[in-house]
Simulated scan of single mutants.
Amino acid sequence: MSGEAAGTAPRDGAEAGPRDATVLHSLDGGVSWITLNRPEAMNAVTRDQRERIIALLAEASADPAVRAVVLTATGRGFCAGADLRSTPAPTGERVPGDVARTIRLGAQRLIAAVLDCEKPVIAAVNGTAAGIGAHLAFACDLVLAADTARFIEVFVRRGLVPDGGGAYLLPRLVGPQRAKELMFFGDALSAADAERLGLVNRTVPGEELEALTKEWAGRLAAGPTRALALTKQLVNASLDGDRATAFAAEAAAQEINMTTRDANEGVASFVERRSPEYRGR
Rank of each mutant, 00 (worst) to 15 (best):
residue 134 A to S: 11
residue 271 V to D: 08
residue 193 D to R: 15
residue 120 P to D: 03
residue 211 A to Q: 15
residue 82 A to F: 15
residue 108 Q to F: 13
residue 139 A to C: 08
residue 260 T to Q: 10
residue 100 A to M: 11
residue 235 V to K: 15
residue 179 A to I: 10
residue 53 I to L: 11
residue 116 D to K: 14
residue 84 L to F: 03
residue 252 A to Y: 09
residue 152 I to C: 04
residue 138 F to R: 11
residue 267 V to C: 00
residue 197 L to P: 00
residue 92 G to D: 13
residue 272 E to G: 14
residue 42 M to P: 02
residue 100 A to I: 02
residue 167 A to M: 12
residue 34 I to W: 03
residue 169 L to E: 05
residue 229 A to S: 11
residue 106 G to A: 08
residue 268 A to D: 11
residue 251 A to Q: 09
residue 236 N to L: 15
residue 132 I to V: 13
residue 172 R to L: 12
residue 36 L to S: 07
residue 215 E to A: 06
residue 136 L to T: 14
residue 24 L to Y: 11
residue 218 G to R: 12
residue 37 N to I: 09
residue 248 A to V: 11
residue 143 V to W: 07
residue 14 A to E: 01
residue 150 R to P: 02
residue 250 E to I: 10
residue 12 D to H: 03
residue 102 T to M: 12
residue 20 D to V: 03
residue 35 T to V: 15
residue 56 L to S: 04
residue 50 R to H: 06
residue 116 D to N: 13
residue 99 V to Y: 10
residue 26 S to T: 04
residue 98 D to Q: 09
residue 221 A to G: 04
residue 188 A to W: 07
residue 77 G to I: 09
residue 188 A to V: 06
residue 143 V to D: 06
residue 17 G to C: 07
residue 47 R to I: 15
residue 90 P to D: 00
residue 218 G to P: 06
residue 113 A to E: 03
residue 262 D to I: 08
residue 138 F to G: 06
residue 203 T to C: 08
residue 249 A to C: 02
residue 179 A to V: 11
residue 213 T to D: 04
residue 62 A to E: 15
residue 195 E to F: 01
residue 152 I to D: 08
residue 124 A to D: 04
residue 199 L to C: 09
residue 163 D to C: 11
residue 160 L to G: 01
residue 257 N to K: 01
residue 158 R to I: 03
residue 6 A to M: 00
residue 235 V to G: 13
residue 141 D to W: 11
residue 55 A to G: 13
residue 112 A to L: 08
residue 80 A to F: 01
residue 83 D to A: 13
residue 51 E to G: 11
residue 255 E to P: 02
residue 28 D to S: 09
residue 56 L to M: 09
residue 160 L to V: 04
residue 5 A to C: 05
residue 216 W to R: 12
residue 156 V to S: 13
residue 29 G to Y: 03
residue 179 A to E: 06
